[in-house]
Design a protein around this nucleic acid. Sequence first.
DNA 1: CTTTTTTTCTAACGGCGTTTGGAAAGACTG
DNA 2: CAGTCTTTCCAAACGCCGTTAGAAAAAAAG
Lengths: 197, 197
Amino acid sequence: MGIVERRERLKKQVRNDILQTARDIAREDGWQGVSIRKIADIIEYSPPIIYEYFDSKDKLLETIRVVGFDELRADFDRIKEIYRDPEKQLVEVAQSIWNFSVEQPEVFQVMFNQEGAFVHSKKVYQQEMDITDNPVWEMIARLRPKAGEKVSMTYYEWWCLTYGFISITMTTQPKHAIAKMETIYMEGVRRFIRSIM
Amino acid sequence: MGIVERRERLKKQVRNDILQTARDIAREDGWQGVSIRKIADIIEYSPPIIYEYFDSKDKLLETIRVVGFDELRADFDRIKEIYRDPEKQLVEVAQSIWNFSVEQPEVFQVMFNQEGAFVHSKKVYQQEMDITDNPVWEMIARLRPKAGEKVSMTYYEWWCLTYGFISITMTTQPKHAIAKMETIYMEGVRRFIRSIM
DNA sequence: CTTTTTTTCTAACGGCGTTTGGAAAGACTG
DNA sequence: CAGTCTTTCCAAACGCCGTTAGAAAAAAAG
């Protein structure tokens, strides 16, 4: 009997609908405008239903954050396989982050607690920045084989550069000007890479 | 008669109390925990009173942001007067930002819409980052007299570096580890300055 | 003391995240 | 089929929030 399966399929679908609706509202009105009640309204359920899928609004946002980081990391892994040269890899990674922030700014905001988005727990964030098993860390390590401990420092600075540039650009630049900033960003990235080689 | 004066003195005091109470709560419980009702409770007035001093919660936060930026800029101006060498000036400015973020993290959060703090209007933020009359811009221009348009680019990157580093550090590092990051930050700043000279 | 002005608060509105208790619907059993 | 059991779902409520209206209280002016 496929009843259980159908139920589970439905559950998964509703769960995804909740996440997607949250992102949709955030894209339209900002994260300040996202409320459990609005989400419930749009997916045509009552508010309590959402609590059958997520323990709290905070956990819901954290899930969006995790999905975002997963997507980014998958792209990094893909890049690592496609290109051999660590310099090229890093340039591609930088481009990948940029594209992500342009295509899914609202997810980027949740990932980095920006623009009114706020996830209480920092665990995922810290974990994701951690050097352990991080493809970007390995790329930098390969670029500076003799740097020893400095690799971790460079890795940290890499995040500061990319994150700082994108979040300042996202916050201060009007939408039409963002495209122009891409060149400046990529130039900065390239200069950074050259400076550590 | 000094009645009017006394009243105005009182008004100024209450206004400052409101701002300071907001910052106090934020420091203790984060900006998510700051509410008009809590502020009113602490200053021992009813909530509507706060609206005689600020049009909205958003405007209240914006005022805190403005005061923060003013304080920072005053320090930059002071540095510009004390030191002649633009390289030294920039190092001191970087140190000044760092100190500010350590001493008043909650204000820093409002200034840059971090960690749940959120001011709708971006006007102040954009204005403050603008190159016009900005002491940091002039320092960089003096450091790179022949750079032409690249000065503005470098200025932008300067903000990305300092802001990116501090906000990532503030968010990911536990309190006890932040002191250790200062050296790494200042090293990064120095390397940046040298790389543009 | 009375009137006028200023200051302040109570009460309410609509919205929020979240929980409770039970109704409605669906699936299984005899 | 009816009856029972299980799952799904929601109305209503709680205690918060920002904000506003209107009345009470206090202060000043006459």
